[in-house]
Computed example of a mutant assay.
Amino acid sequence: MHAVSLASPAPHWLSAEQLLPAAASAVHDWLFNEDSLTRRLTELSAGGFSVTPLREGWLTLRDDECAALDVPPGSPGWVREVYLLGNGQPWVFARSVAAKQALQGSGLDLQQLGSRSLGELLFSDQAFTRGRLQACRYPGAWLPAEVVQENLWARRSCFRRGALAVLVAEVFLPDFWPAASR
């Protein structure tokens, strides 16, 4: 487990057009490709994809998350943190959040996901629409202790279904890039 400092300076989440200088083309493709990351990682790992849950529960959302979800700062929400693994290696750290008020009564039970991919669920439900992808260099203080590193590439997008919004952030870990460049 790890402690997330709510006081960590928020990164500047940028659209593909705002990201200057632009990331290398291979990096840019992984940051802004709108296909399911779960499906892409499954293909890249030749079926060796898995999810390892790290923590989940009701927590106070970070200010950048509250802003993206259009809820007041300090709002409570469901937080799910997992590793997305390729052939047993953590390739991506993912943090998904939803405001408590919107999640309750939505019919979506994130507590039941276990080691299943949230992305698989979101992409299979046609009622969800995906917002614009944004990227940043992720603060090391927001990562699990065993993978802390500054300035890793991350992306996020918000999936909406009616009043429910689920914000999904995905941080590409160092072990991912050698596999992606093969």
Rank of each mutant, 00 (worst) to 15 (best):
D70N: 15
Y138S: 01
T38S: 09
A7G: 11
V92I: 15
G131P: 15
T129W: 01
N87W: 03
L85W: 02
G140R: 04
F123L: 10
Q89N: 09
W78Q: 02
L20F: 08
W30M: 05
L6W: 09
L167R: 00
E56W: 08
V147M: 00
T52I: 11
L41R: 05
R156M: 00
A68F: 06
S117N: 03
A3Y: 13
P73L: 08
L14G: 02
R62Y: 03
L108S: 00
V79D: 01
A46E: 14
L118F: 07
A26D: 15
P174N: 02
A46R: 14
V4D: 01
R40H: 07
E170H: 12
E43M: 09
E150N: 14
F123I: 10
L103R: 02
Q149R: 12
P76G: 03
E170M: 06
L37W: 00
G77R: 00
S124V: 13
C136N: 07
G48C: 09
L44T: 08
A99T: 05
T52F: 04
R132W: 05
L41I: 13
A16W: 04
L20R: 12
L20Y: 08
N87C: 15
L110W: 03
L152V: 13
R40T: 06
T52A: 12
S157T: 07
